[in-house]
Amino acid sequence: MSIQHFRVALIPFFAAFCLPVFAHPETLVKVKDAEDQLGARVGYIELDLNSGKILESFRPEERFPMMSTFKVLLCGAVLSRVDAGQEQLGRRIHYSQNDLVEYSPVTEKHLTDGMTVRELCSAAITMSDNTAANLLLTTIGGPKELTAFLHNMGDHVTRLDRWEPELNEAIPNDERDTTMPAAMATTLRKLLTGELLTLASRQQLIDWMEADKVAGPLLRSALPAGWFIADKSGAGERGSRGIIAALGPDGKPSRIVVIYTTGSQATMDERNRQIAEIGASLIKHW
């Protein structure tokens, strides 16, 4: 067993022997301040990774656009098919120029040779490549099948209805392509620590998230040296922004954090800054 596999296998073990965790309302004060600064709703939840206990939450059962955070769930569904012998990570998928959609920095470079399922998941999570996500959605049967996968996990809230990039439209009061912070946090925890996926697939999923290259201005910008984070960000229309993450000190994750916002007129930089400040408060009061 590799060191990384050992780390993920012992996530519940280490967490069980940690000192009790206590909620700190100071972080919620910052979440509410972010709402004021952005002029928009902000949803927040913080779960203990081992027990699933909610440590703090704000608007945990209000719907927010998922945006690209759905790509972690998508690759979880792909990995479940791999575990069941219905898919192979090494299978190569070929596609054409007509398949390319807006923001496809990886797939646009491989029109000639195609990409493997493993490479597509890596591109979808680490670079948020939209064509990679659409190609992977095709392998599982489309958005409705991802929703069905989530329902089978016990998540009857999260739903995907459309493809990239239309799913980022974020129309107010439109339930399409949305989740709730509580539902997303619980589902992410199941994917990373539950028995739904094999140990190898859980490790692969967290490795992809740990290698995320496009979430630097968010929670990662607030992390002290030595902290662990595996995350996936999302951005959408109407001032929408979000991030889902597993993080913790001492090089291992111990909490799940989900943050979503929508309806702001603020710039992307300002949305990023507010999420980073929430992260800084979380870490300060850990």
Rank of each mutant, 00 (worst) to 15 (best):
A235H: 00
N134E: 02
P172R: 10
Q265I: 14
V106L: 14
A245F: 04
P217R: 09
G242C: 06
G76S: 12
T193F: 13
N152M: 15
G142H: 05
G43W: 01
S68P: 01
R220G: 04
R162T: 08
Y103R: 04
V82T: 09
S57M: 11
D33P: 03
E169T: 12
F228R: 07
G141E: 07
A276R: 13
Q37V: 13
A225D: 12
V42P: 01
V257A: 07
P60T: 12
W227P: 00
K71F: 01
G216S: 08
A230Y: 00
H156P: 11
S51F: 05
E26Y: 10
A280R: 15
L47T: 08
L146A: 06
G154N: 10
P224V: 04
T69V: 03
R238M: 10
M153F: 09
L28V: 15
T261P: 06
I283K: 05
S57H: 10
L74D: 02
S264H: 05
T261E: 07
T193D: 12
A222H: 10
E169F: 10
S104A: 09
I206V: 11
S68Q: 03
N130G: 03
N173C: 12
D99I: 08
P249V: 07
G76Y: 05
T193Q: 15
K32I: 13
L146I: 11
K144F: 11
N272P: 02
T187P: 01
D269V: 11
V78I: 15
P65H: 04
T267N: 14
Q265W: 12
L55Y: 11
S240F: 04
Q203G: 10
M268A: 08
T262H: 12
L49C: 06
S57K: 11
T198M: 09
R273S: 12
L28D: 02
T107N: 02
S201F: 05
L167V: 14
P172T: 11
E195H: 15
M66Y: 04
F149A: 09
P181A: 07
A40K: 01
R176D: 04
L100A: 05
D161M: 05
S104C: 05
T158P: 02
V101W: 04
L196H: 14
D207A: 14
L74A: 07
H24S: 15
G248M: 02
S51N: 14
C75A: 10
L89D: 05
A132G: 04
E210Y: 14
L146E: 02
A183T: 12
A77I: 09
M268P: 08
D99W: 06
I54K: 07
N50A: 13
L160T: 09
A276G: 09
P253K: 09
R271E: 06
R241M: 04
T116A: 07
T126N: 07
D177W: 01
A132L: 00
K252C: 12
V42A: 05
D207E: 15
R238P: 09
D207M: 15
A170M: 08
V101M: 09
E119Q: 12
V42E: 03
D207F: 10
H151R: 14
E270F: 09
V214S: 07
P217A: 12
G251Y: 10
G52L: 05
C75S: 06
T112I: 15
R202S: 15
T27R: 04
S221Q: 14
L188Y: 08
V157R: 11
V31A: 08
E108L: 11
M180Y: 11
R41D: 06
D177M: 02
W286M: 06
R91K: 12
L135K: 06
V101T: 10
D269N: 12
I229S: 00
L38I: 09
L223V: 13
S51W: 05
A211R: 15
E270Y: 10
M115H: 03
E145G: 13
A170L: 08
L197P: 04
L150P: 01
S57G: 11
A124I: 03
G263H: 06
L196Y: 12
L196K: 15
L197A: 06
P249D: 08
G234E: 04
D212P: 05
L74Y: 00
G142Y: 02
W163K: 09
V117L: 13
Q204D: 09
N168A: 07
I275T: 04
D155M: 01
R63Q: 08
T138F: 11
V214C: 07
K109L: 14
Q274C: 12
D161E: 07
K284M: 11
D33G: 10
A245S: 11
M127Y: 11
R92N: 10
S51P: 02
K30P: 03
R271G: 08
A124W: 01
I140D: 00
M184D: 00
E270H: 11
R202A: 11
E61L: 12
A40M: 08
I259C: 08
S128L: 00
A183L: 07
H94D: 09
L55E: 07
A124Y: 01
G279Q: 02
T193N: 13
I45M: 10
F58L: 09
R162D: 07
T186A: 14
A225P: 13
G236M: 03
D48A: 08
A230M: 07
N272G: 06
R241S: 07
E56M: 07
F70N: 05
A235L: 06
Y95A: 04
T138A: 14
R91H: 10
I93H: 04
V258A: 10
H156Q: 13
R159A: 06
A276P: 02
D177N: 01
D177I: 01
I244M: 10
L223E: 02
K30E: 07
I243W: 05
V258T: 08
A200D: 14
L218A: 04
S221N: 11
A245K: 03
R241E: 03
F70A: 11
I244P: 01
W163T: 10
T262M: 10
K71P: 00
D269R: 11
R41W: 04
S264W: 05
T179K: 02
D48V: 04
T187C: 08
Y95N: 03
W163F: 10
A77L: 11
P65V: 04
Q86M: 15
V29M: 15
P172S: 10
G154M: 05
Q265D: 15
D155C: 00
L120N: 00
L167H: 02
L136Y: 00
A266M: 15
E195V: 08
V157L: 10
Q86W: 15
N50S: 14
A225M: 15
I243F: 06
N272Q: 05
L79S: 03
N152W: 12
G194D: 14
G279H: 01
K190H: 15
P249S: 09
A77Y: 15
Q88F: 13
G251H: 12
A280V: 14
K53S: 14
Y260G: 03
A225K: 15
I93L: 13
N173Q: 13
R238V: 10
L146D: 02
A222T: 12
T261H: 07
E108G: 13
G279M: 07
V101A: 08
A266S: 13
K109Q: 15
M127A: 09
K53G: 13
I259W: 03
A266T: 14
L73S: 08
H285G: 09
I140R: 03
A123G: 06
L28F: 08
Q274H: 13
E145D: 11
M115N: 03
E35Q: 08
H285A: 09
N130C: 05
T198D: 10
L49D: 05
L167P: 03
I283T: 09
T147Q: 10
E277G: 10
V257N: 04
E56D: 12
N134C: 00
S104G: 06
I125Q: 00
L282H: 00
Q274A: 14
K213Y: 09
T69C: 06
R59V: 02
E164I: 02
D250I: 11
M127E: 12
P25A: 07
R118H: 13
N50I: 12
D174G: 06
R271K: 12
L79F: 05
L247H: 02
R81F: 08
L160E: 04
D231K: 05
I54T: 13
T262F: 08
R81L: 10
Q203N: 10
H110N: 13
D99G: 06
K190I: 15
G52W: 05
N272A: 06
A183M: 11
E164S: 02
S254G: 13
Q203S: 10
K232C: 01
D212F: 04
K213V: 13
D48S: 08
M115Q: 08
A200F: 10
D33V: 12
A276C: 10
G154H: 08
M115F: 04
S264E: 06
P181R: 00
D113C: 09
L89F: 08
R118Q: 15
A84E: 10
P143T: 07
E61T: 13
Q274F: 10
A40E: 04
Y260M: 13
T131K: 03
S240K: 05
Y44L: 10
